[in-house]
Design a protein around this nucleic acid. Sequence first.
RNA 1: GGGCGGUUAGCUCAGCUGGCAGAGCACCUCGUUUACACCGAGGGGGUCGGGGGUUCGAACCCCUCAUUGCCCACCA
Length: 875
Amino acid sequence: MSIPTHYNPENVEDKWYAYWMAHNYFHSEPDNREPYTIVIPPPNVTGVLHMGHMLNNTIQDVLIRRARMKGFNACWVPGTDHASIATEAKVVAKLKEEGIAKADLTREEFLEHAWEWTHKHGGIILEQLKKLGASCDWQRTKFTMDDDLSASVISVFIDLYKKGLIYRGYRMVNWDPEAKTTLSDEEVIHIEKNAKLYYVKYLIEGTEDYITIATTRPETILGDTAICVNPNDKRFAHLAGKKAIVPVANRSIPIIADDYVDIEFGTGCLKITPAHDQNDKEIGERHNLEVIDILNDDATLNAKGLHYEGQDRFVARKNIVKELESLDNLVKIEDYATKVGTSERTGAVIEPKISAQWFLKMKDLSQPALDAVLDNDVQLVPDKFKNTYRHWMENVRDWNISRQLWWGHQIPAYFYADGVNDFVIANSIEEALPLAQEKTGNSALKISDLRQESDVLDTWFSSWLWPISVFDGIRYPENKEINYYYPTNDLVTAPEILFFWVARMIIAGYEYRDEKPFKNVYLTGIVRDKQGRKMSKSLGNSPDPIELMKKYGADGVRVGMLLTSPAGNDLPFDMELCQQGRNFSNKIWNAFRLVKQWEVDDAIDQPESAKVAIDWYTAKFQEALEETEQSYDKYRLSEALMRIYKLIWDDFSSWFLEMVKPEYQKPIDAKTYAAVIAFFEENLKVLHPFMPFLTEEIWHLFKDRTPEEALIIEAYPKQEVYNENLLQEFDFASEVITNIRSIRKEKQISFKETINISVLKNDAAADTFTSVIKKLGNIETFSTVLEKVDKALSFRVQSVEYFIPVENAVNSEEEKAKLTDELKYIKGFLKSVQGKLSNERFVNNAPEQVIAIERQKEADALAKIKTIEESLGSL
RNA sequence: GGGCGGUUAGCUCAGCUGGCAGAGCACCUCGUUUACACCGAGGGGGUCGGGGGUUCGAACCCCUCAUUGCCCACCA
């Protein structure tokens, strides 16, 4: 035998990927067919493939391959995201290693480094996706900072500004002191931390009395500009209008009253630091308080921090606590569990900071996007995410879209002076000049008087346009491509970015196309390790996907990932799953080997067993196809895969091939052989979306194909009506076979030894599969009898009784015990059925159908009891 | 603090509008049968998180408790 017993994916995978590429099968152009479009969630351009990508992209590939085979014009658009903050952080780190500080570079110099880095690392991840088999239209590969996409981003900014939806404001924002940029609310992760609550007393000016406040951030005392109590708090009524002395700083600040203060919490007194807390800022605005910002951009204290200048905020906290203690201003310290905001990207503790930033008004923009999901115009899978989505959308706040970074889309605002609103918005500085001249009334203004905003836009401000901008539908809303491919069909992504990205894409879709960007959103779970921990680089618990594919084959890994991964459920990943996938590859490979080695003889007749086997598998395949389609419709890919897995492993290999298998070293008839090959090919087609490489390989090994032929573009099997009766009859027959095998095992009758069997004539015993029973049971004669057979082993399937006469093997005591057990069980069953049927309320209330089923069960049980009792009697 | 899920076999999960608890893997037994030991045949295994209730009948509907996960949130 020249075909190896184990499938070796190694050379196969690269070979077929190259073949598909060479024939341009992944490429799509608008035509008369119905489109089926998926845009990839663009991975970070400098990223490396991890298990999350594997899951995500396997799903997309399954969907797109199936659509392609079903005759849609399938288009999967790949690309990468510039990932402003993440990439900039990497470049900064890399420069630091080389001894270069970002601060020493000009913007242009830094961007040169960033582009160099991008060109070097960008695209690695896309190359890795090819190993997985991803059938992306690589000719359409996009990058969020390509010229056309950048132009789209800028034009959208200008448009939204003109619509009055973008404004610049002096607001309290989330400051990441490590990346030295602001973040949107969504980029802030709240983490539970054990903190301390410090009770600090402030001297009331002109008295010997003190007032005690509680704070978690004693270092901000240096920025205090008031003490605040609740106006209804009688305890502090006498302090109205008085002043307090800030410890350490020895400044005098007013004692004010505001409803915000909770009388019950802490001491009922609050220190007000408008520069470093959102609530304090609001209270400060109501009471016209001074704002003292004590922090630098890197969260060290500035000159306002007095002798703590230069110290990090946390160092200063420790030190100021010591000083307060020595000054006798510290009353006590309590443990306190609180949640602190941290940066999604750097992990740094977020500092609330007042600064001038750009915002997008979200309320009105988001309404159509909210409705679309609530009305299922955009379908979330699973739909439990609808609640989460609604909650977020109903409470959406203005989006801080500016970042104090260099890598990204620079905001097209041109300042002619230093005021918060001393700017004009334009496509270029040349276009900005006349606008600025007009706005200022100063026609002497020159280009050199203008200065472009140095901030860039939030990464998501470009990716929210992705499904439109990859087809250049922002700049050219009527272009052929966008009109053809939009709206796309499926978006496959992680729930983590439901708000960051998915919600905003829907918003942009309605704003710029007046139409949803995709029909379905498949939300994958998080890939976790066996212990349930999220797979991450820092934990080192994530296997290298490339290594995995080397070991188990890309197909094996794909199957492993999808076998147990319902939408929205986390995937507890285990190598065993890939092993199962690999084993499945091998099973199919060996089924192929078996069939391939058969010799065909035109001259011999088709046996009856093969004839019925073919009828049966025809129906079985259709049943499986129907079930598979239903699973696909519900996006239950794991179920679809499992059904195909069982179809091929159990139905096809264990049953069908065994039924048609010719005797050892004898040829197979041509008719049966043709059917076997045809079935095998149909199996390969339904499996292809899940295991593209293996199926393509075997499909080509069966026959010589023309250079234009490939499984990837074969037509997916069509659903047809099938004979359900035949399937039921077979289920009966297979139960007979199982019983025979059981008896063989029990009585240690070798399979090589033929046996005889008799069936007691009974209307329920159909004989369609008698030839199959004979073949798979290795039966010499199969006879019908009118009376029970003495001295025989017996078994019953439903109400039909079978006998196997075996010389000397019948031990009547054993038989008796066996029958008694069987009788006991069936009587118990009958009792419960009759219990129901004798319950008047059941008979009166239950639907007719249910009662009929119960009556049938009763009759069957009675018939079976009768045969068992007779057998017992005759023993 | 608010909201939303989950809790079914050792593990991962199905179980549609109430009507005999399922699958895959794992496990056990047997097997050098002429595709495959990455295999075959046969088999065991569940008080459906606890407690109430509705119903002829509850894994499924209602109440309640427990537990676990996720999302949101400016109480010092």
